Simulated scan of single mutants.
Amino acid sequence: MTETEDGFAEAGAGGQPHYHGHRKRLKARFRQQGHEALADYELLELLLFRTFPRKDTKPIAKALLSRFGSFAEVLAAPRSRLKDVEGIGDAVVDDLKAVHAAALCYARGQVSERKLLSSWSTVLDYCRSAMAFSEREEFRILFLDKKNGLIADEVQQTGTVDHTPVYPREVVKRALELSSSAIILVHNHPSGDPTPSRADIQMTRQIADVAKPLGIELHDHIIVGRAGHVSFRGLQLI
């Protein structure tokens, strides 16, 4: 079997490309056993089938994982870096970003339907999905009502690879605008290590000091990274 310049496979012996049976088997396994039965590269292959209806997608799927490390990191990777991988164009990037957006919408829906403090694992899953693999620091605030239901989920600032400017009075001002009784702070460390810095600790305590006299409780500050997450409450830093 050979391949034409436009990326389409020419038929080999028997009139079928060599990967034809592989696609059928992979789809059947997915239908019968679910995504748990597939390796990360196989799940990526499934996504790429629609973009490349007549091309072997396994090499592209493996190249993406080799570059970015995991299925989640592929979906979260910046568009420009995805297109650095040979064989990846706008159509592939659009498909990957659509799946990523769908995953975030689902995770956000899971959070918004629950009382946050009674479904902490769901909150953590959402925060990691939204921020853990970003290449820039982001500072997010979850605004809660008196029953710890989610009022709003907002990204307040986006910074550089290792710094995001945060202004405690602006954080509290926004909480008052939303009539929020409590807040959860979340930010990411693109380095992958979620260990809080001295500046993180100082900023958190400043926000708590400004918020408390106004009746706004700081429930927690979560830092997420590729290596996991840390909770300021769990570390007894607040």
Rank of each mutant, 00 (worst) to 15 (best):
T4Q: 13
E5D: 09
G12I: 10
A13G: 06
A13V: 14
G14T: 08
Q16F: 11
P17T: 13
P17E: 13
Y19E: 12
Y19V: 12
G21S: 06
H22L: 10
R25H: 09
R25A: 15
K27C: 12
K27W: 05
F30E: 12
R31M: 12
E36Y: 04
A37H: 04
E45K: 05
L46V: 12
L47W: 00
L48A: 09
I60P: 01
I60R: 05
L64K: 01
L65Q: 09
L65R: 11
S66K: 15
S66H: 12
R67Q: 15
R67N: 10
R67A: 15
S70R: 07
F71N: 06
F71D: 04
A72I: 10
V74Q: 01
R81D: 11
L82D: 02
L82W: 00
L82R: 01
K83L: 10
V85S: 05
V85A: 07
G89L: 07
G89P: 02
A91H: 08
V92A: 07
V92R: 00
V93G: 02
L96E: 03
L96F: 06
L96Q: 03
H100F: 07
L104R: 04
C105P: 02
A107N: 11
A107P: 03
V111E: 05
S119C: 07
V123D: 03
D125L: 11
Y126E: 09
C127I: 12
F133Y: 12
E135W: 00
F139Y: 04
I141W: 00
L142N: 05
A152C: 06
T158S: 05
T158Y: 00
T160M: 00
R169M: 04
L176M: 14
S179Y: 07
S179P: 02
S181Q: 07
I184L: 13
V186F: 00
V186D: 03
H187D: 06
P190F: 04
P190L: 07
S191A: 10
D193T: 12
P194T: 14
P194A: 11
T195Y: 01
A199V: 09
A199F: 02
A199M: 03
I201E: 11
T204Y: 02
T204C: 10
Q206W: 02
K212S: 15
H219C: 12
H221S: 12
I223Y: 01
I223A: 04
I223N: 03
V224D: 04
R226N: 13
A227N: 07
G228I: 03
H229C: 08
R233N: 13
L235Y: 01
Q236L: 13
Q236V: 14
Q236H: 15
